[in-house]
């Protein structure tokens, strides 16, 4: 999904997608919409913050909060 949003970046090589500039605020909202749709969940408004989209682990943790294991 991340590759779909920003195919030019190597997400595995980054521990902070936001600070490293791999995802901007538009990408983050796009990712939330994609995650909502793909997993039929509703990521909370207060969860749409950079801390939850820093890297694969934080995104995984966010999904786990919504009962999704990847």
């Amino acid at each position: 999904m991340l590759k779909g949003i920003r195919p030019e970046f190597d997400f595995a090589a980054s521990s902070d997608f936001i600070a490293d500039g791999l995802l901007d605020s538009f990408d983050m909202v796009t990712l939330v919409a994609d995650l909502d749709k793909t997993f039929s969940i509703s990521i909370d408004g207060v969860e749409i913050v950079p801390e939850n989209f820093k890297n694969i682990e934080t995104i995984r943790a966010l999904l786990q909060k919504h009962g999704i294991t990847t």
């Binding site: 919409a33 509703s42 909370d44 408004g45 207060v46």
Partner: peptide, 11 residues
């Protein structure tokens, strides 16, 4: 925004 999202997935 949270109140809106509490209505369900999609926005």
């Amino acid at each position: 925004m949270q109140d809106v999202k509490n209505r369900g997935p999609g926005f």
